[in-house]
């Protein structure tokens, strides 16, 4: 591999990791959302490198474009408050970090022991993943999942509308109120 390639991949990986860290550590929710957007875009670049332009564009449009926008709307709607630093649950922080580290270690172990392919794959041809080919595969082999996904989206839409509607003045049809902390 050429040095340039190495440099490019390293840079992209670095950005991904740094933005991830930024996401999980920023106290301000807006900053976290923005870090995530950066993450998504960088991952889209990685997709392009891997020969999946359609997916990369879908990533940018769907993920970074609509989902994150939705997130930002909700953050602003809820007046994302600054929650106190102190961790009320005992041992949560320690155990959390411990478990994540364990997970990481195990995965590395897994890769080393089972031998993931370490050689590079061949480069892909430009005709590998054109919209045509993807479309063909989508509507031929994966037609049923495609239609089901449509159903899922419909359900999500209906669900979202139902859960956030205003109760009518006579209180009929409102969601059952969540009981207060005091009465358990």
């Amino acid at each position: 591999m050429s040095l340039g390639l190495i440099f490019m991949y390293s840079a992209l990986a670095l950005v991904v990791v740094v933005s991830g860290i930024g996401l999980i550590t920023s106290r301000n929710a807006i900053y976290a959302a923005l870090f995530l957007v950066l993450n998504f875009i960088t991952v889209a670049l990685l997709y392009i490198v891997l020969g999946a332009p359609f997916i990369a564009l879908a990533q940018v449009t769907v993920y970074a474009g609509s989902i994150m926008v939705l997130f930002l709307f909700v953050i602003m709607l809820l007046g994302a408050e600054q929650l106190p630093i102190a961790e009320p649950l005992r041992g949560q922080r320690v155990l959390g970090i411990l478990l994540a580290a364990a997970f990481l270690a195990e995965m590395v172990l897994f890769v080393l022991l089972r031998g993931a392919p370490t050689v590079a794959g061949q480069a892909v041809s430009p005709e590998f993943s054109t919209p045509t080919t993807i479309g063909m595969l989508l509507f031929e082999r994966y037609l049923l999942p495609f239609e089901m996904t449509a159903g899922v989206l419909l359900a999500a839409t209906v669900g979202a509308i139902f859960m956030t509607r205003q109760p009518r003045p006579d209180r009929k049809g409102a969601l059952p109120a969540v009981p207060e902390e005091g009465k358990e």
Binding site: L95, L99, A100, F103, L109
Partner: peptide
Amino acid sequence: GYIRSYALTIVFGVVLVITYLV
């Protein structure tokens, strides 16, 4: 009752399963 506690338990279980698989 804390959701994060439950999440911790779930992750713990995942780690265990993966250990077994490894």
